[in-house]
Computed example of a mutant assay.
Amino acid sequence: MIQQIYPAPSHSYRYELNKDMQFAAAHYIPAEEAGKCSRVHGHTYFANLTIAGDELDECGFLIDFAVLKRLVHDRFDHRLLNDDTELFDSKDGSRFPTTEAVARIVCELVQQHLDTRPNRPRCIQVFLRETPTSYVIYRPHPEVRHER
């Protein structure tokens, strides 16, 4: 993957890791207003996940890079995103497989897994490039951190 500098989210965590990956997927936006995008077409998506936290796990990781790849790449690569009706919905505009929604859903899927980890890392940013000239950044609202 080509080296790229991504916009850095502001945070106060001690550790931050970034995982780059790509996946090829097709989709369509089920709305006439989407123009050409209402027809099935594909992209090679480039994603960067930013994970942050204060504690490392028993292996010295925030999260193993391979786990992030399984969560995202294995779920989306060589798929028609619209077929994943667990994640996407052709009747709910907020769940059409737009780049914005895919970035949000990637963040939510990763965070669901991170929530099971004893060190409780956070997915604080998903950068998702759909084409060489178009990308989305999704940052979930920061949650109130409670000191242990």
Rank of each mutant, 00 (worst) to 15 (best):
A25M: 02
R145L: 12
V110H: 11
N18W: 02
P7G: 02
M21V: 03
M21D: 00
I137Q: 08
Y138G: 03
P142A: 05
F127M: 06
C37F: 00
H11W: 07
D115T: 01
E58D: 14
V144D: 03
F23D: 01
N48Q: 10
A25N: 07
S10G: 05
S134Q: 00
P132F: 04
I124R: 00
I5C: 01
I137M: 13
P7W: 03
R75N: 08
P97I: 09
E16A: 11
P132V: 03
F23A: 05
H78C: 02
V72A: 13
F61E: 12
H113C: 02
E130Q: 14
H41D: 01
P97R: 07
H78W: 02
P140N: 11
E147K: 01
I63M: 14
I63A: 10
T116P: 00
S90C: 10
E16S: 10
N48H: 04
C107R: 01
R145T: 03
L71F: 14
D92R: 14
S12H: 15
C123Y: 08
C59W: 15
H78G: 04
D74W: 07
F76A: 09
A101S: 14
Q111D: 09
M1E: 13
K91G: 05
P97T: 13
M21G: 01
F127C: 04
H113D: 11
I137S: 09
L128G: 08
E33M: 04
